[in-house]
Design a protein around this nucleic acid. Structure first.
Ligand code: ZN
Ligand code: ZN
Ligand code: ZN
Ligand code: ZN
Lengths: 144, 144
DNA sequence: AATGTTATGTTATATTATATCATCATTTAA
DNA sequence: TTAAATGATGATATAATATAACATAACATT
């Protein structure tokens, strides 16, 4: 995980963005803005606005991703800063698997072009169950 | 647009679902649940719950799609009931273009399989500007 | 120091979504 | 043909997510 923070043409990482990024990286799983807020309160942050500003900045930097299907944010799982990529999210354990290539975005950009559509953002999310959670299901299943 | 309402293994279309579906089809563009509510008030519907229930049902029937990036719902643009498909959404005019093939979902299912990930839902959304809106930009642009 | 700019803090509010429980309608079966 | 069960609707309240608006602080440039 190189020095992505210094990538050009990207907003700089401010104090609050740093705090939020550290939390998301440490957790390694998606957190909602309010879950971030709860974990950042000890640092004196009390307002959603503050968290949302930091999250927005980190998204712009490409250091985290917003998951539209969860209304949550997760730190990027790829080595280099990149454009949109597909992300699979386990609805049981909230683990994420980020696709390491740009095949799907590439296809979508191509298709958009044929429609004369100018892409500003792509969202590709897969909800389901990871292998671990399929093997070991949630304890509270009704065994009927 | 055939008799998709009678598709098997799918919830039936109740009175409220019918009302909501008619609105979404007539509008032809994404509406939020509360925008639907506003338009359905004349029919005596007053509560968000009622609208969300109808929307959920229609999604299950495959007659409408939920757009995660807009928190909105739009009537399906394909001829036959289908699985997930990619949807481009113009952020200016809110027009939508639904991809008419399943190439991307197919690829994603395949990839998920290689990760031993069981897919329950796919979200593929493209935000940007349609050709019309690129030609004729919003009037309130600062011409500086 | 004065100025402009960016980041942060603070308060309030808007928007989106669900929980809960009561009532009504429709089906099923005794 | 009623009683029970099921499914749909209605009604109220509240939870969860997100932004608006404005004030202050930090920082850079001159
Ligand atoms: Zn990433
Ligand atoms: Zn899992
Ligand atoms: Zn469709
Ligand atoms: Zn448009």
């Amino acid at each position: 995980m190189a020095d992505r923070e210094k990538h050009p043409n990207t907003p700089r990482i401010t104090k609050n963005a740093r705090l939020v990024l550290d939390i998301l990286r440490q957790v390694g799983q998606p957190l909602t803005a309010y879950e971030v807020l709860d974990r950042i309160r000890p640092q004196g942050i009390t307002a959603p606005t503050t968290v949302y500003r930091a999250l927005e900045r980190l998204v712009e930097c490409g250091l985290i991703h917003r998951l539209e299907t969860l209304n949550a944010f997760v730190s990027c799982g790829r080595e280099e800063v990149h454009g949109p990529s597909a992300i699979a999210i386990c609805t049981d354990c909230h683990g994420v698997i980020e696709m390491q290539n740009d095949a799907v975005p590439g296809y979508l950009y191509g298709w958009a072009e044929t429609k004369d559509f100018t892409v500003t953002s792509l969202t590709i999310e897969i909800l389901g169950q990871c292998s671990q959670c399929r093997i070991k299901p949630e304890p509270n299943v009704d065994s009927e």
